[in-house]
Design a protein around this nucleic acid. Structure first.
Lengths: 331, 331
DNA sequence: TTGCCTATTGAAAACGATTAGAATTTATTG
DNA sequence: CAATAAATTCTAATCGTTTTCAATAGGCAA
């Protein structure tokens, strides 16, 4: 039914070994054989079955990128970086979504256990760090955009704690005393780290931490809106709001604008990620820029390097972030 | 080195055949054997090598979803629909991006030719329709969100021509006479269809087509901004602008707002896709809602059905769209 | 002609699973 | 208890490649 290497061999009047050699551009094969094989391949419309090849070679040249959902628009640059790095080494990146479900994440990692891919990058791990850490002993895994509290696994990220500290310190330097935080119920390490940075900055400035000023929501626009509404209904309202993502922050800012609050003066806003939308609307949103493309590129380079060695690199790499100051903080 | 089914067989003191039967939940195997095998599997931490299994079975239970970039936020719902439909049939969806490059699209389709996946869905084909049509004769391929001008391939989409007609007719009914169109240089079938609908509506209303009113740009926000700027610098300015995506339309509207144009009165805006951002900002954007989740779900159901038969369904399914009227059209 | 070296080639053994079909064990029946 | 049926189990073939190793052919020197 299907055309196999045997059919090509027969048509070209050579052995399957020779066909294989031609297909893989080995040098020890005569001009004549090359021609005959290529003709047969064309005539029959043959293309090699990767299942056979991969089984024999025990490698697939494919890497899994496990994300939560494709919604987070800044993944796009990360994935571009990953693809570019993979391309130069002859790998393909397969994207797969967990829909923020740990069980499904484990199911997808099954592709790794069962050798359907050579390695995996987790971009929004929901599994607990012990599990991931154990897996990383047997398989080629890396984390990107996040880190694990157990740090015996390859990680490429930014210093989120530091970024949270930087943002909060900046708002304090602007004379703000009651700084709200809109974060997520889901305790991703990056959210926790940003929150810790926020607390450290408060402490460093001698401002007492007030749990009422912290809102725990989801990752979407409307969650930001609800968060802002909640915080602004407090008896002593915040004078600045730091959100752990631009999407959330834009949702929050929308509430303020629609309720006549002067953004950038009465209330400052600071986001995170520097997505396209963050500078398209008035007032433009101050935010933290993280090197998405570079993180993606780096994690794949390191991961592929790890595949080639018995002594894998398990370091955590923190790439530099920067604050982008715009109208939402009165800049 | 790696643990194979043989190791499990040895540890459980049975043959590989029995191990395989236990692993695949066949009924003709004794309780005792099941226990022994399961224990051995746990002890050894074995998980089956899919390359071996897939080769033998000649199926992978994986379907490729080929998109342009993950940027387009409305893909998220489509992919969710695809995954849900795939899940009930035991398939996984692998997402892969062409970065809008036909050559790379062909490379990715290689996974189909080489049997690394069982089928593929094209969500933003860049290859010419002849090529795709030919491939669909040998492989299980479907199109989603788009269609081909050659219609001998499974397609799940909306009636984009009709939608373009509906939008334009609505604007005309609102008394508008000079209706601008912001579309894309890349001639995707959906863009072409929407543009054709636009023209048909003009003609039906006896309004002459004016090529100056059509701007060809990219898919992003800033392209909308540039498009609006260009159209508004015409001697006889448009009194309404239809953009082929919300992202573009929001970019366009941003230009208007920032230049003191009263949106919804001086200038009406109509978008396409009903993305989250479209109703988050004042003025809220009127747009076309297309059933993303349903299209994704449907295309996978039909594709999997096609995999089980020798007489595949090559129909084009057009699911219903609807107009969402908001402030940008004065509603 | 013979021998030796090199360049090609082919036969057959992997890779790790599934699955027919044969072989064995166990249960059932007269 | 023997004969038969049913339930398990095993051996070995198979999927489509790559790759080792042996075999062959051709060229060249002696």
């Amino acid at each position: 039914m299907n055309i196999t290497i045997k059919d090509v061999a027969k048509a070209a009047n050579v052995s399957v070994a020779t066909v294989s050699r031609v297909l893989n551009n080995k040098n020890n094969v005569s001009e004549e054989a090359v021609r005959a094989v290529n003709r047969a391949v064309d005539d029959l419309g043959y293309s090699p079955n990767f299942l056979g090849r991969d089984l024999r070679k025990s490698e697939t040249k494919r890497i899994l990128a496990i994300i939560g959902t494709t919604e987070q628009s800044f993944y796009n640059d990360v994935l571009r970086g990953m693809q570019d790095a993979a391309y130069v080494e002859g790998y393909d990146i397969l994207i797969v979504t967990t829909r923020d479900n740990a069980e499904h994440e484990m199911h997808l990692l099954g592709m790794l256990f069962s050798r359907a891919v050579d390695g995996a990058v987790l971009l929004a791990p929901r599994l607990d760090s012990k599990t991931i850490s154990d897996l990383s002993k047997r398989y080629r895994i890396a984390i990107c955009l996040e880190r694990l509290d157990i740090d015996d696994i390859l990680c490429v990220t930014i210093d989120n704690e530091r970024a949270g500290f930087d943002v909060t310190s900046y708002l304090i330097a602007k004379g703000r005393k009651r700084i709200g935080l809109i974060t997520t119920k889901v305790r991703s390490q990056s959210s926790v780290d940003r929150e810790n940075g926020y607390r450290r900055a408060l402490k460093a400035a001698g401002i007492p931490y007030d749990e009422k000023l912290v809102y725990y929501g989801d990752y979407d626009l409307s969650s930001g809106t609800r968060g802002c509404e909640e915080l602004m209904s407090l008896d002593s309202k915040p004078d600045a709001i730091f959100s752990i993502s631009d999407t959330i922050s834009i949702g929050a800012m929308t509430y303020a604008v629609q309720h006549g609050i002067t953004v950038g003066k009465d209330l400052l806003f600071f986001g995170f990620d520097n997505i396209t939308y963050s500078h398209m609307f008035m007032p433009r949103l101050s935010t933290v820029d993280q090197p998405c493309y570079l993180q993606g590129k780096t994690v794949i380079e390191k991961l592929i390097a790890n595949m080639k060695t018995d002594t894998p690199d398990k370091s955590t790499y923190m790439l530099p972030h920067s604050l982008i100051l715009r109208e939402s903080t009165g800049d």
